[in-house]
Design a protein around this nucleic acid. Structure first.
Lengths: 312, 312
DNA sequence: GTGAAAGCGCTAACAC
DNA sequence: GTGTTAGCGCTTTCAC
């Protein structure tokens, strides 16, 4: 100790008073760490998804002194390349490569030099951590909610696995959710009475519900594969004079704003956007770059759209 | 020219082949420019607002070789301070200080040293460029849509200026929109038949519509101050056996996803989130730091919720 | 015009 | 341990 404690303290107070902060740029040049994480997404706009993901990611990043460079490719490989280059130029420490919804897709090779976590990507050839919502358990939770209320018969699915001409195998979330639903129903000795396969948009929910009804089906419960489908279902049921939940119980997925806006308020299994963002960052920061799957629970949000089936 | 053109070309091709890119950190240390813009928002999550704003801001930023450091304060001054410090440490070139919805609020003093544009802030004591949606013209456009369809009588407002006990003067958007509506109606020699003042959430839209109806009012047209109120209004009208647009025409504001999901699809004056983001960045980059107001048009999106009034 | 050298603000390595 | 120095990769300045 060549300088006195007093002197040291005086320097520190002076620094604090002057508001001295080390220059991060200079520090980065020397150390090659920028304390900045890139968040590259295919689409941040269309859905409410992104906002919460960013929020969760940012909160966790900030706790560790990191900031987020956020960008969106719009699915355009040209933009993606430019974005990746710009981020590399700025020497981001790591990247979250996020997809708007759970589907195949993986980060470009240019990113292979740094830590990357794949958010929402089902591509299992990606050689690093992937974080995904636990869609299978979500399906189980939805079915459980119905079963626990006493439902067993005439349970229909609206949306199903999202089987359409463009996606003949459906979508990942659909397959997983339906697998969970089917399993729980099987466990209590029953099964889905019918499934209307379609794209997960309100108009198909409306059309699907009408088509079910007009084909003579009499659903006592509807598993809507997302809230937008449930919106369509509500409209159709009302048009046919059926009441939710008195005549038909409804359970759904996503827990978007819609779920709480609808009347009766919709019971829905939440897509945990915020947690997904948090988990992506903490997975990135835990130092383990090994290939693995990190799964985030999807909690059931119980509201007013489920009640025990009426005995005829 | 000491080196031959050929040598120069060979160097350039070699650089391109090796994928050489100048180190932005080193460059920044030397030049004090990072080609990075900070986007600080009070809330990016809750609303779909943020996604599109970020998208627009990013697109424009990228065109100019800039990237976006995105952060959210959650309205917490402590977080805000930390965020601002972190951004200052990283030497962002400029900052967009954005508010989730149009209201008072201004950037902290710590940012006064660099170019800032205030997005969605009504605080006119802020000494720099502000960008705001043109709510007044939006009000005019909504009223015009009704008037052009032949409406003049029994036009009610739902939501009004958002007069509540917490906000006794309402909100900026409400005051502006209603001013525009009132003016257009006055121009054609009529006026609002009544206004239901409330917070702009679906349940109030529902309650407000019912209360209007039950008080003996017979609206032929409803100006809903946002789409969520319109959702509530649709539910209430349906409950009372009134059809949109046959019995009641509806026009709304925001043009959120809801507007296209509702049946009949809702005519709504759009909040141009994407354009707001674009405009914020281009305003930031045009070099003019003077205090001024940049206004972004709100376009009418015509759908199926307006038709001429029935003659009794 | 062209080439060399200084230096941005910091930290890691190195002598003492 | 503690003080000094070299150098991160670039741009700008200044000699030539």
């Amino acid at each position: 100790m060549r300088i006195s404690e007093d002197a040291q303290r005086r320097v520190h107070t002076a620094a604090a008073e002057l508001g001295y902060r080390p220059n991060q740029t200079a520090r980065s040049l020397r150390t090659h760490v920028t304390r900045t994480i890139g968040l590259i997404s295919d689409t941040i706009a269309t859905t409410q998804f992104a906002g919460e993901v960013i929020h969760g990611a940012l909160d966790t990043a900030l706790e560790h002194g990191y900031l987020l460079l956020v960008a969106e490719t719009s699915g355009d490989p040209g933009i993606e390349k430019k974005l990746v280059d710009e981020m590399l130029d700025r020497q981001v420490d790591a990247v979250i490569y996020a997809l708007m919804y759970t589907k195949p897709g993986q980060p470009p090779d240019a990113l292979s030099s740094l830590p990357v976590v794949l958010l929402n990507g089902t591509e299992d050839c990606f050689d690093g951590p992937r974080v995904l919502p636990d869609e299978y358990s979500a399906g189980r939770a939805a079915a459980r909610a119905l079963v626990d209320a006493g439902h067993a018969e005439a349970i229909y699915s609206l949306g199903g696995r999202h089987l359409t001409s463009e996606a003949p195998n459906g979508v990942f979330a659909g397959r997983q959710r339906m697998a969970g639903v089917d399993e729980v129903l099987a466990e209590v000795g029953t099964a889905i009475a019918g499934s209307y396969e379609c794209a997960w948009e309100p108009e198909h929910g409306y059309a699907g519900t009408l088509s079910l009804l007009d084909d003579g089906h009499r659903p006592k419960a509807l598993v809507c594969l997302n809230d937008r489908l449930a919106l369509g279902a509500y409209q159709a049921l009302r048009d046919r004079g059926l009441r939710v939940p008195v005549d038909v119980s409804v359970v759904s997925f996503d827990d978007s704003d819609l779920a709480s806006w609808l009347r009766p308020a919709l019971t829905s299994v939440a897509l945990p956007h915020y947690e997904l963002g948090k988990t992506a960052v903490s997975t990135l920061l835990d130092g383990n770059r090994q290939r693995r799957l990190v799964t985030v629970p999807m909690p059931l949000r119980s509201r007013d759209s489920i009640q025990p089936p009426r005995v005829p």
